[in-house]
Write a protein that binds this DNA or RNA. Sequence first.
DNA 1: CGCTTCATTGAAACGTTTCAACGCTAGTGG
DNA 2: CCACTAGCGTTGAAACGTTTCAATGAAGCG
Lengths: 243, 243
Amino acid sequence: MSNAEIFEPFLRRLRVSTEIDEEDEAAIRHLPITVKRMAGGQPVVSLGDRPSACCLVVDGFILRSKIVGNGHRQIMAFHQPGDIPDLQGLFLHVMDHDVSTLGDSVLGFIPHAAVRSLIRKRPNVAEALWRDTLTDAAIFREWICNVGQREATSRVAHLVLELYTRLKAIGRADGLSFDFPASQALLADAVGTSVVHMNRVVQQLRAQRVLDLERGRISILDEARLREIADFDVLYLHLNPSL
Amino acid sequence: MSNAEIFEPFLRRLRVSTEIDEEDEAAIRHLPITVKRMAGGQPVVSLGDRPSACCLVVDGFILRSKIVGNGHRQIMAFHQPGDIPDLQGLFLHVMDHDVSTLGDSVLGFIPHAAVRSLIRKRPNVAEALWRDTLTDAAIFREWICNVGQREATSRVAHLVLELYTRLKAIGRADGLSFDFPASQALLADAVGTSVVHMNRVVQQLRAQRVLDLERGRISILDEARLREIADFDVLYLHLNPSL
DNA sequence: CGCTTCATTGAAACGTTTCAACGCTAGTGG
DNA sequence: CCACTAGCGTTGAAACGTTTCAATGAAGCG
């Protein structure tokens, strides 16, 4: 896999959002990167670590989670190809949460030193990366609302629409379906419900022909209805930040 | 109020976290800033706005919130003197949430253009501000956990410890108490419970002599017990990011 | 003074969790 | 090839935490 291919999903995203020029793109493509294939459910970096590289999702999905006092896990974010989930490590030196693979994934590791020198040399790139971390934050805020105010069915619908919208933006949705290798237990950790209740919600959405999940694939059956249930407004994803 | 005084709480925070030199500090102090006194509960910027300035909290508190579909409000963050709550506006042009004052406050507005030129000229400052937005994100993540996994009593305890810890860091706590002009209804919006339940939680914590809230003031009575209840770990606040 | 905001209370309804059990499917080793 | 296992989805029933509604009292303000 060439550097050009590895960085392509990432660059495609940057082009939409910033004034990235040819030289910026070239500088990014010349970043040193170590590609690593990982199985699903494996830790990438963990609470307390002091990583010296940040990780670009090339293929697959990454999740960020935390274990709380009672032993339960809360998932706080999913990341897709083209995302750099732990950019924060550049400036916050100790990890305050865990990062792990969802399903089998391909990750690229870029040394912090290289990124740091890139952002000092190319302010456009710095801004693009900064914006990336800011939209991450916007997504966190919406998750707070999701988990804090909506009821379980709504939460699941909202999560699905978020994933779908972001994946569609990078051309990884086929029609109204997309691959997402998550068990019901995992989705429960993301929306803050028990597995049992998650299961009932899934069945209910299936029965109403709104949504279906099976073996790592999510299919939207009735998009309009799903949007109603989800109380979803794309704004917070800042997909086209120039607007 | 001189610029030096206005920027002092902000600078004090930066000094802890970054290699800010004399020139950086001077550049910050020379930022154009318009100071405005605002009553409590007033909007600062709202959903859909395209602000052209960002706002520095000089005195008082600011909160970030969102109204969800069912009409309920979720508060996603509180900001204290020295914070710049809407730095995101520099790169994400449309506001995806509301910002308003908690109690009576003094705010300083700095034009985006001035901040933008500052960060191009002074990479140290850019990094410091970037880090600020990253710790904001870390706090959002912890709120997701708080609201998603802990039960109401724990959530309140956690929120109180977060506020206390951050205020102590800037010298705004007297002993184990601090001013925080929030009604129970407002706290309920922050931790995602009903007002009624919030009230019962407060009474319970009072009865156990763990915590007391009265007329805009929060007092910790039993810090050790509060920490247990809260499941609180400072790490995520990144108070000393050089570590 | 009446008005409004905030804190408080009780009772019933509700959404969700917990526990415990069962079936299905895919993978593993004998 | 079958037995065994592990993981995942599914189910029922009871317990639990929380919400809702409706009403009341106290405090502060014009």
